[in-house]
Design a protein around this nucleic acid. Structure first.
Lengths: 156, 156
DNA sequence: GTTAGTGCAAAATGTTTGCATAATG
DNA sequence: CATTATGCAAACATTTTGCACTAAC
């Protein structure tokens, strides 16, 4: 057997939950697949309006994808929320939000499994997903700040 | 010297940033201090309206507190955002959101420092704060689900 | 053919802004 | 007393809803 493409997996996920495969849902999915950054729904609605998807439909499709677990919410800079694809549609990753330039960086590595397994044991929780967001300075902004300020303090 | 009370620290933080100490700001701060869970601004506005703080003022006060770093945003269940006090007004902690009952649990322990230090080294980032949210089942809901479903799969 | 999804218009909700008044430092 | 914060009203943006129509299965 060959591996399913993301879109095939998406179609199966829709079927599995009794949702129908529609052009609008595919369009939203493909758009998210092509994006590297999380999108606010309002922005997504505005963008896709140009491609023929009604804004109201975008809201409904995002609800659908949330229900499927195909997307998950992420805190954007201004305490707004955006959405991005979840695993396995998108590699599991975390974020660093830079206080300097405001950009959101992806962190590919994730070494939280031992930490999470410990939490599960201590609390008898079952952890199915997790999200880590770091706030601080990206490499470039950290350099700038180091150049202007002589000494700096650390706190994580 | 004695240790400042949270409110004294808050007053100093206001001063330090050129903000004035006002009854409304104190009221919002005290309310947050008394709460155990993050609040959506709209809910906070509604609640404090009963205590004489105008809703519009609540929005402005939250902006102020965000600017000070006294509060930070947290993703609530329905992909809405809430705010809660940051350290040192509130002990550093993380959250587990339960898929079963929808409640948000605090996780007192945090063993992320080594993980974060590694990320800082690899990327040359400077990490100043971090937030971890787990999604899964609380102990009670995990038991219920274990009772109804024979075998279960794990994924973090 | 049955049921679910979409478009539209409109309502409900949430948030921001401009300006006059009140209060802080 | 100079400046910032608040209240109010209104603008603005965002999200939800009801219903007729269309499309998926």
């Amino acid at each position: 057997m060959t591996v399913d493409t993301p879109e095939q997996m998406f179609r199966k996920a829709l079927h599995a939950h009794g949702y129908r495969v529609t052009p609008d849902r595919l369009r939203v999915f493909r758009h998210l697949l092509a994006r590297t950054q999380p999108v606010a729904v309002a922005e997504l609605a505005e963008t896709l309006a140009g491609e023929g998807t009604h804004p109201v439909t975008v809201y409904r499709v995002i609800d659908c994808l949330s229900d499927l677990g195909v997307v998950h919410p992420v805190l954007l800079g201004n305490s707004a929320v955006g959405f991005e694809l979840s695993a396995p549609f998108r590699d599991h990753h975390h974020h660093l939000r830079c206080r300097g330039c405001g950009r959101l960086f992806d962190l590919a590595e994730c070494e939280l499994d031992p930490v999470i397994r410990r939490i599960e044991e201590v609390h008898h929780y079952r952890v199915e997903a997790h999200e880590l967001t770091l706030e601080g300075l990206c490499d470039r902004c950290a350099q700038k700040e180091a150049a202007s300020a002589p000494s700096s303090h650390h706190q994580a």
